[in-house]
Design a binder for these strands. Structure first.
Lengths: 326, 326
DNA sequence: AACCATTATGGAAACCTTTCCCTATTTTTT
DNA sequence: AAAAAATAGGGAAAGGTTTCCATAATGGTT
């Protein structure tokens, strides 16, 4: 493949001049520019981005460490973040950690050695001590010391769910969700605010004995089997808020299997926006996250890193989606 | 950050020796190795991968150009391909084309300039003329001249669906799917074999007037609205094969809205494996694709490129998933 | 006509590795 | 003991850019 040197020789100019032409930098006489551009076209010269990365010490790549892009909401996030970064001229590298801390650490190391421009981090693991201050990081839904973060307004989401259920006449509420804070106490997850907002609003309204069903963090897709049993135990529950739509879907199925009608007997509200389950007859009433807005915030923050502007944490509004389950 | 030069100076050896140490290449005396490794640890030296890419003229990155990772099957594919490549030591860059040919071409150009090691291509567009022979390519589900490809056995899938429906007693069959061959005649899509296998098997069994509902290729997620009308027109149809589970889910919803019971009155078979819709009470009977096996095949082919071994096209077996809709 | 600012261009260093080639030392073979 | 082979290690080029610095040409002022 032709290099800048070949172009320079062929055009009878120095390589610095060719560099100025392709980068529109410095002074270049009009005729010289035209001559060089002609040769570039002839030789089909394309600047080698690796060499460029070499001198710039960065490579135009943003990495996204994510547990599992199979989870629909995460898949959407990847999609929109990719779109957004494309606009800014960045490329997106997707790194699936499968929630494994070891894989996250391998990736962080690798990404640093590859001089990626930034890393977007979505993890529940306690990796604070391994985060390199020199690597521009943005965290989604989790707070780490000194790392700017983006999150949906989970607390408001919890309130919204509680408000809706209570106003719909529910008297006995239940929350079902993974214990994202599990063993790793130092990680503050935004997600836990869903539970918090829900609980606090219910308490304010005099519902003090909301049943809290927690289970260890899994793969985001299936809930542990014994949860099904716990749903059965509480026949008096008439309003359930689930940490995600995927969980809500499972819960609805389980309830109906047990002969309870949704939403007549029990109302179920999920979280994420109900998009995933809209096709099969029944759609899920849900607190929606806006992946596009989240992606835009991430794009802006990465750009702020690039421009060396100050970076402020972003809380993205949620919305209410009225489906068939509540 | 410490460079190989710093290590060399500190350890009192030449840079070539340090290089040999970190790459386990050439001859290095045991004591020298230990001395160098000690300094490497002290300075926390990590080889700069960009510089390495510079000399190697490749960067350890495989790119995956995909229409839309939001589509569940594609999301799964990304997930498994990423896992597989991780094993081989490659990183995965995900490029969402949104089915837009312009974006695909921009990406192809960019990836070439970035000297990625290989590109996995998933597209319906007619980009054959733009494919660079020097760039190692692997195509999924589409055949391009001189490009090795991986595909599920779509033809067998079509047969399997027809066989099942006919053996279940269906007399009036329908196929619903996008016209993946649309305007772009030169692209041979594997997906069109789903229709073909279905039609041919039905014909063999004497069902010659299978209704073929085609619509222009969209975003893989929603089918055009007028298709709903066409479903309504054919009240005698008792067996429908859909090009994907997403379409099947829409079709089931539409049928039930029109008062037809699934699977009693009409049986519906989807394609992809029924995983996407298993949560909401009714699961979809489906011809399954195996994303893990596909990913493994892709991994092997990329490795074959690397090892300069011959590469053979791969057809991945499909399987039958018995759900509630047929 | 002399001077200064502006425009224009090229050479070379720098970015950080790998690798080729050469020299030196040690070990093995005859 | 001499020759050959194996081991060890260093210098420098190469990979393809960008950018700093120096020099040269041009245009405008007085």
């Amino acid at each position: 493949m032709a290099s800048i040197k070949d172009v320079a020789k062929q055009a009878g100019v120095g390589i610095a001049t060719v560099s100025r032409v392709i980068n529109y930098s410095g002074y270049v006489k009009k005729e010289t520019r035209e001559k060089v551009e002609k040769v570039i076209a002839e030789l089909e010269f394309k600047p080698n981005e690796i060499a460029r990365s070499m001198t710039k010490q960065k490579n135009g790549i943003v990495a996204f460490i994510i547990p599992n892009s199979t989870h629909l909401f995460f898949g959407e996030l990847v999609h929109f973040v990719e779109q957004e970064l494309f606009e800014y001229g960045y490329k997106l590298m997707v790194c699936n950690s499968s929630e494994k801390i070891e894989k996250e650490l391998v990736y962080l190391e690798m990404l640093k050695n590859n001089r990626v421009d930034a890393v977007v981090l979505l993890t529940n693991n306690d990796i604070e001590d391994y985060l390199d201050k020199k690597l521009p990081l943005i965290s989604f839904d989790r707070r780490f010391k000194d790392v700017p973060y983006v999150a949906s307004d989970n607390y408001a989401g919890g309130i919204m769910a509680a408000k809706y259920l209570i106003e719909s006449g529910c008297k006995n509420l239940m929350f079902i969700g993974d214990d994202a804070q599990g063993e790793t106490t130092s990680v503050i997850t935004e997600v836990s605010n869903r539970r918090l907002g829900f609980m606090e609003f219910a308490k304010d309204k005099g519902l003090t004995d909301v049943i809290n069903v927690e289970y260890p963090l899994g793969d985001y897709v299936k809930i542990p089997y014994d949860i099904h049993k716990r749903i059965g135990e509480h026949v008096d529950v008439d309003g359930i808020f689930c940490i995600s739509d995927a969980v809500a879907a499972e819960v609805v199925t389980e309830l109906e299997k047990r002969g309870r009608k949704v939403p007549e007997d029990v109302k179920v509200v999920g979280f994420d926006g109900g998009r995933s389950f809209i096709n099969l007859g029944k759609s899920i009433t849900s607190i929606g996250q806006n992946p596009k807005k989240i992606a835009e915030a991430i794009g802006k923050m990465i750009n702020a890193y690039y421009e060396k502007e100050p970076i402020t944490n972003q809380i993205i509004p949620i919305y209410f989606f009225k489906g068939d389950t509540a």
